[in-house]
Design a protein around this nucleic acid. Structure first.
Lengths: 231, 231
DNA sequence: CGGGTGCTTGACAGCTCTCAACTAGAGTGG
DNA sequence: CCACTCTAGTTGAGAGCTGTCAAGCACCCG
């Protein structure tokens, strides 16, 4: 009995293209690993030794300048694939934002297996193309949107991404959700400072667009306003 | 005799994974097309009807907001692949910056052919992963760098990308090159305004870091200074 | 030579960053 | 249970960078 049989992302992750025999073979290469919030999984510019599927939790992908500025370049949710197959080094660090569970493979093992299983490579390709689309739309945000547009866009994306990861059938975007980000991390996603993020959150609250019951919880009160602000 | 036989990017584009028979089959699906500078090839949010390989020239990938702000999210050089296979719509418009020659396929034809030829999909996967890496490092630039860092990074990247596309063995980055971008387009790449770009160029010239013999030509005089500025 | 486009330069405003002080909340130990 | 500490977040004042608006310049083309 392989652990993949009970995997909650079995039908959503790139593994979904594999039959039972293939899953069994892949299972012998991978292993489960728990990562606590704040713990790194992959280092930027490291020899990229491992790749992984996210089973549970949220992780951030970041790049940094030498002088310590950080930019979050991606966020991985359950069923997402992380790491850099077919390349020598990773271009981003991966750090858990929440306690997370991942299914890790050595890069070499994964590369070899993938080359022998076109169905897996195809799933990975579709996922990578979708991620590239998302990343490009984020470039628009970083390059051309002002602070309030960035915050509005961010909250709308969060309400969608966090709704998807639930097991229940998708009922549209979540009205209320818990951010997996600190204020600083929100700033690192949006290319802003923590103070600007804080001020924008306060403004949205004062304007009655959102409620912020705790530091991490968000309730969208006036979604149309948020959509209008997102630009 | 297929036109692929004489294709200058035959050994660099995703086609390089195919044998002669496969190339012949692919050749029957595609056709050459010339695009003049300024002419669009793919519209954003359009039903993505075609994909293509760039043979010659440079094209921009852009996304826009409703109110007309534009962000260049990618640049395609010879041997690069453009378009969005395995998806309904394209997330970016593609417009030629210079006169260009491309090898176009209907998306459906290409999708079908790719699924039957894992070697091609693998090449496309490697290319997409590399493009994602590049895009992510550009996010760092957009989110966290100031105007002079952006300009310096841009010029260094240009000197590398434009050197690669030549036929001669790569001799390292070009010292002198012709920008395929207008000032406005440079601004659209970097998330700046045309005025800020112009001022930064003037400053680099006055500081003796670059020379600007014409509007489009750049000669890097003091590369170390540029590297130091890039952050 | 004149017109047009693209680029440069200047003056100024405004947004976001920086620096600093303060507050709220979570965790700890008495 | 409460005081204490520590961190995360908020708020304020001011500066600086980049954007905006406007004018002028330079190059390309007929």
């Amino acid at each position: 009995m392989s652990s993949c049989d009970t995997c909650v992302v079995r039908n959503r992750a790139i593994c979904s293209g594999l039959n039972d025999g293939e899953i069994g073979a892949l299972n012998t290469l991978g292993r489960r690993r728990n990562v606590v919030a704040g713990e790194p999984l992959i280092w930027e510019d490291d020899d990229s030794l491992l790749v992984a599927n996210v089973i549970e939790g949220v992780l951030k992908l970041t790049t940094s300048t030498e002088d310590g500025r950080e930019q979050i370049v991606g966020v991985a949710y359950p069923s997402d694939f992380i790491g850099r197959p077919f390349g020598q080094t990773s271009s981003a660090s991966v750090v858990a934002l929440t306690d997370a569970r991942v299914c890790v493979f050595s890069r070499n093992d994964f590369d070899r297996f993938a080359r022998e299983h076109p169905g897996l490579e195809h799933k990975l390709l579709e996922r990578t193309l979708a991620e590239l689309d998302r990343t490009r739309s984020w470039m628009m945000l970083l390059g051309r949107k002002n602070a309030s547009e960035k915050i509005a866009t961010f909250l709308l994306e969060m309400s969608e991404r966090l709704a998807e990861s639930g097991c229940a059938p998708v009922l549209g975007p979540a009205k209320r959700f818990t951010l997996p980000f600190s204020r600083q991390q929100v700033a690192d996603v949006l290319g802003l400072t923590i103070e600007t993020v804080s001020r924008q959150f306060t403004k949205l609250k004062n304007d009655g667009v959102v409620e912020l019951p705790t530091r991490r919880d968000v309730e969208i009160v006036d979604r149309p306003a948020l959509v209008a602000m997102a630009g």
